[in-house]
């Protein structure tokens, strides 16, 4: 028996109930999931299929000409394992119609993410479905994702699981080993990997995040536990610099009730 840090049986039951209720109570039966070939979207597809029924989960696979061919193959492997309907949409023409010639990786990467978002929301409209988000807690808190790109979604089923927990959870759910084992990457340009871009391993990043976020330890306390200054500052700077992505834009307030400040209704208000 493998040693897991969380009770994934319970996590699974909880997230499945979450997906069901948040989908049905918002008036939907179906969802679309952008399958990247990575572990996050694979886990979300597995959970969604179990929660809503496999026929109600549509996988959208959106390769670009520079994407790693393995990404598409791995996405198709998830589709095959789950037996869910899918659509393959090559986004090369759309992207290349806008960008002529060379452009910085991050600009192009953000654009790819936002084109994929546009397609997912269009497909959601076509199928009367929600867009299932695939962001995990590490990514959300480090702000390592494209604002209004891959961050845009109706629900975040795995938004409270750190990346290292997503790997464990994937193993618990029997996601194919080759998807779990490969290096995490957004695959927005050739050779990109999360850990080289973030400057540390997820294991290291998550350890610091847990101390800072969940246990509310101070920077000094974390340093005194033996974590390297460079790592801790990397994490804390990323959190600070990306806070804007996790909030609504500020509204210039002058009326009695202003969106975001004192017009305070719950998300799930359906009266």
């Amino acid at each position: 028996m493998k040693e897991f840090r969380l009770n994934y049986e319970l996590v699974k039951e909880f997230i499945i109930e979450f997906i069901r209720e948040e989908t049905y109570s918002n008036g939907f039966k179906k969802c679309v999931v952008g399958l990247s070939g990575g572990v996050d979207s694979a886990v979300v597809a597995y959970l969604s299929a179990e929660a809503l029924g496999k026929e109600n989960v549509k996988a959208i696979i959106m390769p670009y000409k520079d994407s790693d061919p393995a990404s598409k193959e791995d996405a198709l492997l998830v589709v095959k394992k789950l037996g869910i309907p899918n659509e393959l949409i090559d986004i090369t023409e759309i992207v290349d119609a806008y960008f002529k010639g060379n452009v910085a990786n991050v600009r192009k990467g953000n654009f790819l993410a936002r084109i994929r978002m546009s397609i997912l929301f269009d497909k959601a409209k076509e199928f009367k479905a929600l867009v299932m988000g695939t962001s995990n807690k590490s990514e959300l808190i480090l702000g390592y994702s494209t604002w209004y790109g891959d961050m845009a979604a109706s629900l975040y089923p795995i938004g409270d699981l750190y990346k290292t927990e997503v790997f464990e959870f994937a193993r618990f759910l029997n996601v194919p080993e080759r998807i779990i084992k490969k290096k995490p990457s957004a695959d927005l340009w050739p050779g990109q990997t999360d850990e080289s871009e973030l400057g540390a391993s997820y294991k290291a990043l998550d350890s610091v995040l847990k101390l800072y976020i969940d246990q509310r330890r101070t920077k000094e306390e974390i340093l005194s536990l033996g974590y390297k200054k460079e790592l801790v500052e990397n994490v804390l700077n990323r959190i600070k610099k990306t806070q804007f992505k996790r909030t609504l834009p500020p509204v210039a307030k002058f009326s009695p009730r202003t969106v975001g400040l004192d017009f305070l209704y719950p998300h799930d208000f359906k009266v």
């Binding site: 109930e17 979450f18 209720e21 948040e22 109570s25 975040y156 719950p266 998300h267 799930d268």
Partner: peptide, 8 residues
Amino acid sequence: AGFEDGMG
């Protein structure tokens, strides 16, 4: 039982 805004 049930969920509201992600709280279960």
